[in-house]
Design a protein around this nucleic acid. Structure first.
Lengths: 205, 205
DNA sequence: ACAGGTGGGAAGACCGGTCTGTCTTCCCCC
DNA sequence: GGGGGAAGACAGACCGGTCTTCCCACCTGT
């Protein structure tokens, strides 16, 4: 048998998913990440997930006991990949001082808002889709609080007074600018950044 | 025949709905307003709507050709009842100057956040639930733009410079504080109000 | 004043489709 | 030969939406 005939449905299915990862769970996660982050979690069904990742339904449910457990895994990956390795580390890289790092968050946001596939913050979206009482809503709230913790840490490095209050105010600006960007205001990040400048000024001793 | 025996299912159905409005369409709207505003539009089905409003399915579809048309009607009522007669008119009533009226928005927000049934801004919620491309998402964006128009009008009364930019920035604060309040930050309105003070200051001449 | 027609509404069966989740069948590869 | 995975049928619930059946209140004609 020639090698081309050996592989019936698996390779092109992998190509559909991500043209890469060999293991089923990786392909499922890659597809879930793309669909959930761009279209939300309620709009994406299990059937579509398994079809797009080229995986059998039984395989899906062997790795994830329920759709919700996949959403939990997605939120965790979103936190690692997008929050940590995406926004926060990039903001820290750009600013030479803690103050500049805080403001750089909105520079990164501004570029993020221009992306084709920009579709709002997944944590805010899941929280509103499922409600704050639902376990998935609670998890989203926890990840948002984690972001606030990091902002607060940078604020402490900057020597700002009342760092927790500062972080809560800055997250209002972050969330508000994201929502406004969904509406189509492409300059939302600039506006929020300007208000962040004033906010930092009033927390500097 | 005694009067009690005359009325078989209609009155208690009205009591279930709102204990008031006689006409079917009013009861449907009352139930839809409560359920949609507290739980979102995707989570509430037609069957639940007709059951809670004590109305037949055929009656529902005689008044509303589809569920989406009811959601459109809900958004319009939300704009009239909540935005106009609720937040904006109350804010205008409280402040004696345009500047105070702008800041009073956040005082009204602060009290709104404390309500039992507070469950986020319906326009933002529908926009994220349906996506900004969906007709219902578009309608939500239009209503948010209408709110911005009113804020801009008050800003012009106040003689603020660049009133449109001001209004867009203030709406970032409004939306951000609402999202943060959903997470449980009960002081989100105060924080946003403080930032609004700085924002007004920088737009005053 | 009363009989009969009429129309709106309640109740709910029903339709096709979709959802999550289970289970069977087959096949390929070790 | 045995196990994992692909394919997909299937179950049970629910979705939005249509349609039938029955009943009751009101209007009309005599």
């Amino acid at each position: 048998m020639n090698p081309e005939a050996k592989v019936p449905a698996f390779p092109e299915a992998a190509a559909v998913a991500e043209s890469g990862p060999a293991h089923s769970v990786d392909r499922i996660m890659a597809v879930a990440y793309e669909l959930f982050s761009t279209r939300g979690v309620r709009d994406v069904g299990v059937n579509e997930l398994i079809e797009r990742s080229g995986v059998a339904k039984a395989t899906f449910y062997r790795h994830f006991p329920s759709k919700d457990s996949l959403v939990f895994a997605f939120l965790e990956q979103r936190d690692k990949q997008w929050t940590m390795n995406g926004i926060l580390s990039e903001a820290r890289r750009r600013g030479s001082t803690p103050q500049e790092q805080l403001l750089a968050i909105f520079d990164v946001f501004g570029e993020w808002f221009l992306r084709e596939d920009f579709e709002a913050c997944s944590f805010v979206r899941v929280m509103l889709e499922m409600g704050p009482a639902h376990p998935l809503g609670q998890a989203s709230i926890d990840y948002l609080a984690k972001i606030r913790g990091h902002v607060q840490a940078v604020a402490e490095e900057a020597g700002l007074v009342r760092p927790e209050e500062f972080a809560r105010s800055l997250l209002i600006l972050m969330k508000g600018s994201v929502i406004q960007a969904v509406e189509g205001d492409m300059l939302a990040a600039e506006r929020a950044r300007q208000m962040a400048v004033w906010l930092i000024g009033h927390h500097s001793g």
